[in-house]
Write a protein that binds this DNA or RNA. Structure first.
Lengths: 233, 233
DNA sequence: CTAGCATGTGACCATACGGTCATATGACCG
DNA sequence: CGGTCATATGACCGTATGGTCACATGCTAG
């Protein structure tokens, strides 16, 4: 963790250093990221940097901590009593929170993407094993509960679905950022709703039902944007 | 591209160099990969290396070329007349081919994963823009055709679905490798079938139908392992 | 003004990088 | 044998890396 001297810095200077470091870790994977470029961009001498951090790894882990801390600010309110919520409306809130995080902190989101790519770097191993595995486990339990409540098909492959749902959370954010940039548009929940629809109903035409009329009404609709949930069954 | 001297090498020596380079690019992102480690592992002097390749980029692009070349060997037979095949059975073949490639060439697959992480490296930009974008476009067209044939819901978000389908191809291979290692088991198509089921039917319980009996039969089944396709509708 | 102490600072370290090049090697030809 | 050629080789180059350290600076206390 950073040294006391770093915490005692003027907030302005402190954040100048953090921002410079974020830029660097967006542009380069861990091994290729350079302290020299960071201190230059931050406008501090190199010696000073080592007054603030033990080494490169110290800085990196500090940044990762800041990222998860920030992301949790978005996610925590949504994750209260998750087992009491209908699965898809919970998932909708989770994806929505993830997308709001990505839109409000696009640079942090990009580091997250970069990290996934660098996943076999020793520096990241413990950090990743903890946070990434956790996500799969949470969705696994949520799926089990939802199946028990009859909201989810009983015959799905739970670990695989949990894994995909967990991955798609990153995907929807990356996809939105790539398409729309960081324009913080009100329409962002439409992407989430389409994603939820994708997960809930699949893309195949429904197999049964005599009437072949209007496909739009044959599927469960996403929750209306304002409601808290609990529509289906 | 490699110099003539490289092509004239004894096949044994040539592949020793390629294998060493593959190991290096699995272990490190492009910027951090080192020529010194490669030549050491390959057991050749550094000077010799530069008789064979212009520079690091030359070697890297050569390897990428080999990877796509190899992957196409698996994919090409499947992609003949793609518009004449039923969408989900084509998709099943595509995912199956991707998984067979990953299982037979796990180290090449891992480089592929690494590349995606390194996507904003200038060396990769043109290469990636071409191959990755293409994949989305192909699925986009296939989806349109399938919708016209009534195999796919008319109300899906086509670009998003194309993107997700394209991403999930990598996901299923990574997921399998992580769970089963490179054990080339006959069961690998079960993963593909579960993935296809996931895409076709979603994970939500079907919205309609009075009878609530056995969920397994309410959905369209994947093609039987041996058949070439065209079952549904 | 002096002493003590936290903090700022950039020259400097060993090491490693990608890449070069003068020279050595060895095969073929006359 | 001498000459010519492609190839093999590792010492070497400039540059950059992560990290260190002796010293400078400035604040507070006596």
């Amino acid at each position: 963790m950073p040294k006391e001297t770093f915490l005692n810095l003027l907030p302005d200077k402190r954040s100048r250093i953090e921002e410079a470091a974020i830029d660097e870790f967006i542009a380069y994977p861990y091994d290729a990221a350079g302290i020299n470029r960071i201190v230059e961009k931050a406008g501090i001498p190199k010696g000073s940097f080592y007054q603030y951090f033990e080494d490169k790894k110290d800085l990196y882990l500090h940044l990762l901590g800041r990222i998860v801390e920030r992301k949790l600010e978005y996610l925590a309110p949504v994750m209260e009593n998750p087992f009491q919520k209908e699965f898809f409306s919970l998932l909708r809130e989770i994806y929505g929170a993830g997308l709001r995080f990505a839109l409000s902190n696009p640079r942090l989101q990009r580091i997250g993407t970069r990290i996934l790519a660098d996943r076999n770097n020793p520096v990241l191993l413990e950090f990743l094993a903890a946070s990434r595995g956790k996500s799969d486990v949470v969705f696994h339990r949520l799926l089990e509960a939802a199946i028990a409540r009859g909201e989810i098909r009983r015959d799905i492959d739970i670990p695989m679905s949990a894994h995909l749902i967990s991955e798609l959370s990153q995907s929807v954010a990356d996809y939105y950022l790539e398409r729309e940039g960081a324009r913080y548009d009100e329409s962002y929940m439409e992407y989430v709703d389409r994603m939820i629809d994708f997960l809930r109903n699949g893309i195949g035409v429904p197999p049964d039902r005599g009437g072949q009329g209007d496909p739009g009404e044959r599927h469960q609709k996403p929750d209306p944007p304002t409601a808290e949930g609990k529509d289906a069954r």
